[in-house]
């Protein structure tokens, strides 16, 4: 039997937790691009910040623990763009396959071959 009482994982206020980790990392270019896509697509009305938060929450605690911040954000941006019908799953799948085929590193894969 589930003991879930409706208190969702992301709603963290007051829960037990460890010491604050003050380590800081710089953002990589791909992370800055995720941030820019999030701002631009929401400013243009394709989703709301609430829609992004909803997607992040629905990804669950495992995603929070195992994925980096901008990994979760690109997943949420994509989820909202698919729901808004900006592109289809098929278009995304084909393009991701094509991107992967360009090379083994981000630098290589970010080069557009058909440009």
């Amino acid at each position: 039997m589930s003991e879930f009482d409706g208190h969702r994982w992301h709603d963290m206020g007051g829960r037990e937790a460890g010491a604050i980790d003050l380590a800081q990392h710089d953002y990589a270019l791909w992370e800055k691009r995720v941030d820019a896509l999030m701002v631009l697509a929401s400013e243009k009305g394709h989703f709301t910040v609430d829609g992004l938060r909803r997607a992040l929450e629905d990804m669950g605690e495992q995603a929070f623990e195992t994925m980096s911040y901008y990994e979760r954000w690109i997943a949420a941006v994509n989820q909202n763009l698919l729901e808004a019908g900006v592109y289809t799953i098929e278009e995304l799948g084909r393009r991701m396959e094509e991107v992967q085929a360009r090379g083994a590193t981000y630098g290589e894969a970010a080069e557009k071959r058909d440009a």
Binding site: V34, L37, L40, V77, V86, L92, A109, A110
Partner: peptide
């Protein structure tokens, strides 16, 4: 995914 989404947009 970031590259693909960006290019599609």
């Amino acid at each position: 995914m970031e590259i693909a989404v960006r290019e599609l947009l």
